[in-house]
Design a protein around this nucleic acid. Sequence first.
DNA 1: TAGCTTAATCGTATATCGACGATGAACGAT
DNA 2: ATCGTTCATCGTCGATATACGATTAAGCTA
Lengths: 103, 103
Amino acid sequence: MSNKPNLEKYEPLAEACKALSHPARLAILQRLAEQGTCICGEIVDVMPLSQASVSQHLKVLKQAGLITGTIEGPRTCYCIDTKAIARLRKSTEALFGKLESCC
Amino acid sequence: MSNKPNLEKYEPLAEACKALSHPARLAILQRLAEQGTCICGEIVDVMPLSQASVSQHLKVLKQAGLITGTIEGPRTCYCIDTKAIARLRKSTEALFGKLESCC
DNA sequence: TAGCTTAATCGTATATCGACGATGAACGAT
DNA sequence: ATCGTTCATCGTCGATATACGATTAAGCTA
């Protein structure tokens, strides 16, 4: 029995952290939260990035499961997935709890 | 006055998340926490990575301020910086708090 | 001093990220 | 049908990340 930690075990959290590891994506999440209601490509107007780049970041957040995107006619409406955020919050709290109890 | 969010504002948290965004680094942190006391290159024996790679990950964690490394004779002793973890925990909690109050 | 251990760094190769212009696809309006 | 709007995707490019063998540096021991 090897006691090498199974790195796969840490992949979900690592993936989530990766999704949060870009200032633009944090700004997008914050914006979505502030709007309360879902907003769309209006994010593009507000971000200092091209439409393509914003779309790319939205895709990353969506693939990470942190936001949902629903097509509404010609536009797409993005919204924070609060359940997913709550789960991630629990995971990070569990991690930090362990780490803080060290030393 | 533009209402474009200042992305620089999000950089510190993004940087911290980046440091957490690799399974090996999460495993190292966990290991450091479990040991309670500081450990050294024994991490290398335990991780499924080369000594060079582990050293690289330790460097990333150290540069992110999440761990400290002190040289003790021929070895280096790494330890979780609980204060830094606590600060990061606060930051993420603040973020998640805002995000969860959405929709 | 010579040899061993430990760990950082170098050099290299590959993969992924991030940005953006250009293009395409879907839809609504005329 | 044609146009305009909205947004996703493609293709490309430079930068960064990751892994690892090889080397170096530092310290201990004999």
